[in-house]
Nucleic acid binder design. Sequence first.
DNA 1: CCAGGTTGCGCAAGTATTTGCGCTGGCTTG
DNA 2: CAAGCCAGCGCAAATACTTGCGCAACCTGG
Lengths: 330, 330
Amino acid sequence: MTRRLAEVAKKVGVSEATVSRVLNGKPGVSEATRESVLTALDVLGYERPTQLRGDRARLVGLVLPELQNPIFPAFAEVVGGALAQQGFTSLLCTRTVGGVSEADYVDLLLQQQVSGVVFAGGFYAQADAPHEHYQLIQERKLPCVLVNAAVDHLGFPQVSSDDFVAADMAIGHLRALGHEKIGMVLGPRDHIPSRRKLDAFLAAPEADPGLVEHTMFSLEGGHAAATRLVKNGVTGIVCASDILALGAIRAVRRAGLAVPEDVSVIGYDDSAMMNCTDPPLTTVRQPIDAMGRAAVDLLVALIERASVPADELLFEPELVVRASTARLKT
Amino acid sequence: MTRRLAEVAKKVGVSEATVSRVLNGKPGVSEATRESVLTALDVLGYERPTQLRGDRARLVGLVLPELQNPIFPAFAEVVGGALAQQGFTSLLCTRTVGGVSEADYVDLLLQQQVSGVVFAGGFYAQADAPHEHYQLIQERKLPCVLVNAAVDHLGFPQVSSDDFVAADMAIGHLRALGHEKIGMVLGPRDHIPSRRKLDAFLAAPEADPGLVEHTMFSLEGGHAAATRLVKNGVTGIVCASDILALGAIRAVRRAGLAVPEDVSVIGYDDSAMMNCTDPPLTTVRQPIDAMGRAAVDLLVALIERASVPADELLFEPELVVRASTARLKT
DNA sequence: CCAGGTTGCGCAAGTATTTGCGCTGGCTTG
DNA sequence: CAAGCCAGCGCAAATACTTGCGCAACCTGG
């Protein structure tokens, strides 16, 4: 009922045969004719076959939860750059308020015939979030790598930074500075990286489970959580992201105290510009460069059908001591 | 020569007719059969037609130069959110070092049959950069909106913040604080928004053209440029981005001076977290929320074939006074 | 347990696309 | 300037995909 060839052929004034040849990249058509057929195709709104524009685009989806926290754009740059070097193009997908869900993005990516997907900080990290769309990827055998702590074994290879060690370092640092009443500001309860940090916190016998706050990952969330902790008299706060830490610093000041003189605050991520903040933030750095590269290497291996262990690659974080932590006043 | 239907049909053990029906979403096929046909398709590596996965995705490309400067992720969130509300999905495209060029992204987007494109801070803003790919978009009559000051009339509608007014505000603010020796740190010489700011600077009769530095948009660029300015004895620096301003602050300190006591620094953009820096940055805010919404409105109008003036919509910036500027010491 | 309805599917006829072959007209060569 | 060559294209045959129709299997209500 469509009669594409016929319609296009009439429009250009050539035979159906010629249009067919153009569409299939067959020889025997002059460049000029080829051009005009292609133009007519576009004008009439038909999809030209993928192959016609250079070689098939090697697309990879990169799914991120947000862009507010600078760690995610930074990660996107690392992954995008590494993919580009391997000849892949990345499609960046970000959840937006009231907008497109992760499942929608997965649909979209499948539709666009991507060669693979990298997820960072997605729903897979939250135990209570829907996970059906990951199974969809699995069924399709689409190469996929998860960054940072997935819920359970979905069977995808993972690249994570070691949250347990990270929290341990942060707490150790505060202890070494003489702090004893230490609080934690974490993400949602079902968020796996937060849980792992919590495990590290509770591993210490002197830890007080009452000084753990769960909140959402925003400056305001950090502010609210830290306000409660300060009220409970903590002198050190370990946060699950730099943004939370900035919120915590604001909360401490709002309470009439100073950072780091009265309360020490440690962030997590070491996102950009944390050395320009007031005070420069002591934080635990995720090695995003190495992680991004590793994720891309894994993904490319999967795409090329190499067998890759569905393990979790743990990356060692690094404590970056700046000026938001100090020895406890005696 | 391919005989897709036949091959798939044999694999699944049904007739070609059934496969055809599945491929075209026709009724009269049980869910189970449909599933197995699709699976076989995937296994055999055939593309399933776009329509099969829900209704045709309404895609819009969003092309950004980088993600380091937080203004771009922020803009991406605004535009992405606004598009989502209108039922569009945004594909984020970012240039990466040694990676995909703007022209490549345009090719990609055309190939993916996007409904429209939003460019922010792209090559169109630089007089000496290649512009052919914009013409390609124009020829295809693809809806397109440019954000912030394009080189010349490429015929696309534009949404910009008023750079002249912005620079004027910044300079006026410094003058009001008693500063007379004021320097400027701008982007590349052929960068149109920087030129417009330069125009505002030179409009004042007492302006010294020797105190204008061109550099690339990075912290290090700002640092280097500001170092030269400080050596020349300026007491106030107006920067073309917040990142440049942070670099400038570092340069001032490296020179043994203090911000704002010895030298006042003004940024531009008011990107996120500039109120957490040391000192909190005085800056000129781009109304990215309004601009993003306007850009999306224009684009959607274009997509719906409404006629839209190919004008430049100028948005008024806003001076945000924090603590990186102070009265000149007498 | 049977009649009638419904759904899923294959047959084969109908429609669309691809391709072998040969015509044409322009360019090269002697 | 004519003969020969060949790229570019259309014709029509071959191939590939779509669809109207009817059969069969399975439910459903008597």
